[in-house]
Design a protein around this nucleic acid. Sequence first.
DNA 1: AGACTTGCACGTACGCCGTACGTGCGTCAA
DNA 2: TTGACGCACGTACGGCGTACGTGCAAGTCT
Lengths: 215, 215
Amino acid sequence: MPTEPLSRGRIVAAAIDLIEREGADAVSMRRIAAELGVGVMSLYNHVPNKDALLNGVAEAVLSAIEFTDDPDAHWTDRARTQARAFRQIAHDYPRSTMLVVSRQLHSTAGLLPVERALATLRSAGFDGADAVRMLRMFVAYIVGSLLREVGVTPTFAPVHNRLVTAEGVDAALFPEVSSLAPLLDQCDHEAEFEFGLELLIQAISVHAARREGTR
Amino acid sequence: MPTEPLSRGRIVAAAIDLIEREGADAVSMRRIAAELGVGVMSLYNHVPNKDALLNGVAEAVLSAIEFTDDPDAHWTDRARTQARAFRQIAHDYPRSTMLVVSRQLHSTAGLLPVERALATLRSAGFDGADAVRMLRMFVAYIVGSLLREVGVTPTFAPVHNRLVTAEGVDAALFPEVSSLAPLLDQCDHEAEFEFGLELLIQAISVHAARREGTR
DNA sequence: AGACTTGCACGTACGCCGTACGTGCGTCAA
DNA sequence: TTGACGCACGTACGGCGTACGTGCAAGTCT
């Protein structure tokens, strides 16, 4: 059996697989090579170094997301669709999400979502400067939300291991936290995301309307 | 000269110093020990392992932030003050910021800002569930903003190394990106942060007002 | 005072890591 | 046929986190 020849694509795919199965910490050149049944140094014939490989992973994940966009829809719906497409990353590649958001990709894969978002915001009537501002705000919110969802950033579970409410200490120092503990340690990520998304869209709608009015 | 005895505090301080001087990648137990002029294994008499040490760094940075809070001020001002205090981290400890936001701290240092934020939101009239929602939205926005500011997440500089606008390729594929390039690769972090912050506060103000009205 | 415990600095060693470098084999061009 | 080239691979180096053992100083108990 002529085992399929090694290639950048196969290496990246193996890396993604490994990350999703065992987490980003499990990724090492040796481990990936073993996964593919090849020698470690063979990888370097297709990838210059580990960092470039991880960029490849980020690009591949980003490219796998379907950024459908209907230019005729109302801009609010386009914004919702694009934001949700991005959030899809957290669902489909949860353990790779951190990698995707923390590497700036100057490639086509990285620029395409930016292009789409800017086009949408321009269609909403924002001038260039405002479109960029809005984009940055959305991105900040989305990135922050994804990191919470994949567990990088806290959901705010105030140590649900006993004694937090049992001991009086905590309740005295942190009355709000301890009384809201049940709400804090459960989190419907989709609902939270949608809630903030709607709030943002509504907020910039009125921003747009006021701008329109004073013109 | 009786060199000051080793302690958890001195180790954490040395780690923070090292991170801010040379970046998070430069941090190793060996490096920190060298910085302190002690043997590597001596560190383990005061810190169980590297992970715990990094948690200590996150806690220390968080504790260094002054979360002043005037309970009598209008809740919108309190929210602004608290958000800005958090952003201060990106100014004072830029290279440690990622560490702070990516580790959930169940200690006093970690819970205090949460407690303050919840108290503020409750004072704005939100019930528990809404306060938690609002908190999560703010945190997502703030975390996303800080990561952009410290360069973890992209500002969206579309490769200002030549050819992006010189070659026709890019301009054809990404008309918005290339035409807005000058705006995309400069970013006044403070202005951007304040812009989004005001938008959020305004948005949840109307949210609160509507809730009040329908009661 | 002497014996004993305890705390802490430190050296050595093991198994990981990324990757520089050299070697050998298969294929294709001249 | 011969040469060059692409690519898989082994070896080796320096750095990492940390388990483990050793030795010394200070404190405690009899």
